[in-house]
Design a protein around this nucleic acid. Structure first.
Lengths: 157, 157
DNA sequence: TATTGTTATACTCTATAACTATA
DNA sequence: TATAGTTATAGAGTATAACAATA
């Protein structure tokens, strides 16, 4: 927790600063993710929920597109969707015009699970965020869209 | 790879309550973590690097304390430290006064690897952060200590 | 031949339970 | 008996490679 040497003064040197910032962000993100993973609900795993939530947002979607959205390989996703289907959370609808393709769609059960989880699953973080003072909370709120952009950002390298 | 349909609604701008905020943060963190994990250096895994970095910060440290700091079980950590030791990145020093305990300490090779990685490993994020405008970068900078506090915060439930 | 998806295999990360060695 | 650490086992999450079905 060495937060003593705040690099606030070196703001002018844009060369060095992003590296420090990203080093810190990287560790924080990895550790927060680990903690969140540990609080996964029994029965549904974090990957499943992430995929489920994307299916909700993107409507009926092919496996390939869903894999691209989730940034995992179709092979990996195939396994995950298989589990979701087995749990009755999604259905695969064959495409009439292209026999190779199936569209994945949320089932009513899946939708209910998402809504239930949106309150429960989030409780760990929500409780902590509630305890933050207004400034800190505002800082998180402002950073969130930026984080989302960091993820979505195209281009591999 | 149809990624044309960008989910603009992802902007949970409307949600100002802690629950909404944390739901968004949760997804963002999990996905960013997944992306970062994919960029792990060959040879050293993310867990190894995380543990290594904690050993650097906390000096010679017992396995139990390191496990607590990393929030994983001693059993899990034992495996990870075993790999770190095998790679010559840390050494276990037996405690003279208590034969059960060994202190884990960074080797020179480990220290060099950390420093090298601090630039390389982070490059992916750093490049993206460089492209942000000043406001966005400031938002991340301000949020980072808050995220760290969310992680460190004690008390399980 | 190219595309979409699945299956086989392998490795990391993690946990719990059972164990060993020391106190 | 209690504590520090290790080993065994198992399941999730991921990738690559090989495959099947369809276009």
């Amino acid at each position: 927790m060495d937060r003593t040497g705040t690099p606030a003064q070196t703001r002018a040197q844009t060369g060095r600063e992003p590296v420090d910032l990203s080093a810190g962000l990287r560790l924080a993100v990895m550790r927060l993710a680990r903690r969140l993973r540990q609080r996964a609900d029994v029965g549904t795993t974090p990957s499943m929920l992430s995929a489920l939530s994307t299916v909700e947002r993107r409507g009926p979607i092919t496996l390939g597109d869903l894999a691209a959205a989730e940034r995992i390989t179709p092979a990996t996703l195939s396994v995950i969707v298989g589990r979701l289907e087995q749990e009755g959370l999604v259905v695969r609808e064959p495409d009439p015009s292209d026999g190779r393709v199936a569209r994945i769609r949320l089932s009513p059960v899946g939708r209910r699970l998402i809504e239930r989880n949106r309150r429960r699953k989030t409780a760990y973080l929500a409780r902590r965020i509630e305890r933050l003072d207004a400034d800190d909370r505002e800082a998180v709120r402002r950073a969130l869209p930026v984080l989302e952009r960091l993820i979505d950002d195209e281009d591999g390298s």
